[in-house]
């Protein structure tokens, strides 16, 4: 009987969405920074969008790398 396919880890999906969000948020933050857009928000001078977006990208890439279906399959293969 055929073995059921191993599901993709939820953490891979988390990595995917964090990366997409990071790109969107950091992109919007960078645009504000480079175009000199003045926002009315408090502490706008800290450009939270840039570093928070960057953090999301880093976290997202880590999750994508560690929980990618290919890597898990290879690890399983070694284990077997």
């Amino acid at each position: 009987m055929e073995k059921p396919r191993e599901p993709i880890s939820i953490w891979y999906f988390v990595g995917l969405i964090l990366t997409v969000y990071g790109i969107l948020i950091a992109g919007a933050g960078l645009y504000d920074l480079l175009a000199g857009v003045k926002r009315q928000t408090v502490l706008a001078e800290l450009h939270a969008g840039v570093w928070w977006g960057g953090l999301l990208i880093v976290l997202g890439v880590i999750y994508l790398r560690f929980f990618s279906p290919g890597r898990r399959k290879r690890q399983k293969g070694i284990g077997e």
């Binding site: 969107l24 948020i25 919007a28 933050g29 928000t41 408090v42 706008a44 939270a48 969008g49």
Partner: peptide, 12 residues
Amino acid sequence: LARYCGPGLLGL
């Protein structure tokens, strides 16, 4: 949220 978050962060 509106006090601190600009575009993108607000959406998040």
